[in-house]
Computed example of a mutant assay.
Amino acid sequence: MQKTKINSTLIGILGLTMVTRLDSVMAPSIVKIQQTFPQADVTQVESIASIGDVASMIASFIFGFILTKITYKHAALIGLSLLAAGGLLPIFIHQSIAQLLFFALIVGLGSGVITTVLPSLSAATYQGERRSKQFGWNVALEDGFAMVWIVLGGFLANISWQDNYYIYGITLVAWILALFFVPNLHPKDTATTTTSEAQPTKNRWGLIISLLLIAMIVEMLVAVLSNKMAIYLHTYHIGGPSTAGQALVFVRAASIVTGVFISFFRRTLHNYLLAGGFGSILIGASLFIKIHTFVASAIGAFLIGTGGAIILITVPFLLSNLTAATTYPIVMGSFSALTSLGFAFSAWFFKYVTAWFTTNNLSGTFILTALISGMIMMLLIVTNLQKRATLPNEKIEEV
């Protein structure tokens, strides 16, 4: 792409990062929705904030195939239209929980489309180290915007839970940006901008599958914090729900910092970047096991968040080295679907596996997190997987 086209595409990418995490902004309103519909099943009400994850997982996988048939612009506009419809219609139509659940599903479908388009468009626009940096900036911006939307959503929820839905008005801004700045190109038109012909085809799909599984596992490990932080702080008399919220902010902050400084991490760790990410999770989980204070919890959350961000930025970059532009949307659709599955499956996995070696699910969860992280870290070092997934001519340098 020419430089002017790349610069305009960057505006389109920015518009997409604004809305990728909108599927969780209704969480602050769950209690008020339950009060409005006291006869409704509590689980159904809580599902308003989580059912979108299921829809997003399905949409990511399916749309990975659809994106190979349409342009980036058309795909982005479809996803943003779904987000806008699912998020704004409840302002006017909210007579039952069933309606709100339906709209939450629509939001999830839109979110799944966007999380498939965004990395594919980024990979098609940039090459080499600049591509890696863009993946980092995407994650940093996604989490940065997510923090803003959740805070604003909480403020609006204090007025009325219906007002919380006004946050989705940002999708209209993103839609306009996508209309003008997302290129009307098919993935096949950018085929020369992705994987190098020098990359050997031998065992390429083995590497791709391995990287996808790594992404799913790391999302499962990071989800431990969302599932266990409040329980952990309460069990060790460190704090209540508000304290848990403060501690979880460090996970978002870690993603932002890591996204901005991903080039530094790459230059420092080189082909051991993925191993370093699991090492960071190992140290963070160990702090939760050994030291029961808020400071240790915050540092542990930051380290786990840093490790997770390193891996979730690096894996899509490595996949872009291994995958042709025409099939990259399918691979990234699988990536989005599997990471969503890892997050959703996390609580059940740790519930049943920790029961094999301890009756204390809380401490067992962090012990198992540390063990899994240590095992995968050693496996990555021994197999040298990251080096085998890196282009032979790729240079790690500041661009």
Rank of each mutant, 00 (worst) to 15 (best):
V151S: 12
I150S: 04
I231K: 14
V182K: 01
I209K: 09
Y166P: 00
K202Y: 11
S160V: 05
T194Q: 13
S160F: 05
A123T: 06
S196A: 11
G154I: 06
A191P: 01
T116D: 07
M220W: 02
G112S: 07
A198K: 15
V148L: 15
Y165P: 00
W149P: 01
W161L: 08
L172D: 00
Y168T: 04
M147R: 10
T115C: 05
M216T: 02
W161V: 08
N164V: 08
Y126V: 08
R204K: 15
V113P: 03
A146L: 04
T116W: 05
A123L: 04
M229Q: 07
T192H: 14
V151M: 14
R131Q: 11
N184P: 06
D143F: 14
N203H: 13
T192R: 13
F135D: 04
I214Y: 01
A140Q: 04
Y236S: 01
I208D: 06
H234T: 13
I208P: 01
G136E: 01
I150F: 10
R204C: 10
D163S: 12
T201L: 14
A215M: 04
A146W: 04
L212G: 06
W137D: 03
T195N: 13
G154S: 13
D143Y: 15
A198H: 12
A124F: 01
I150N: 00
A123W: 05
L185Y: 09
I167N: 00
Q127G: 06
Q127T: 14
D163I: 05
F145R: 02
L152N: 07
L185I: 05
K202C: 05
R131N: 06
H237T: 11
I208Q: 11
Q162R: 14
K133E: 07
K188I: 12
G153V: 03
L179H: 13
S132H: 14
I114F: 03
R131C: 03
E219S: 14
F181I: 05
L212A: 06
Y126D: 02
Y165N: 08
L109I: 15
A198M: 10
S120I: 07
Y165L: 01
T190G: 04
L141V: 10
D143A: 08
I159R: 07
Q134D: 07
Y236P: 00
E142V: 11
A146E: 04
E142W: 02
S132K: 15
A198W: 02
L211H: 03
T235C: 05
F155L: 10
E129H: 09
G128T: 08
S196W: 05
T116M: 10
Y168F: 15
K133I: 06
T192P: 06
P200G: 07
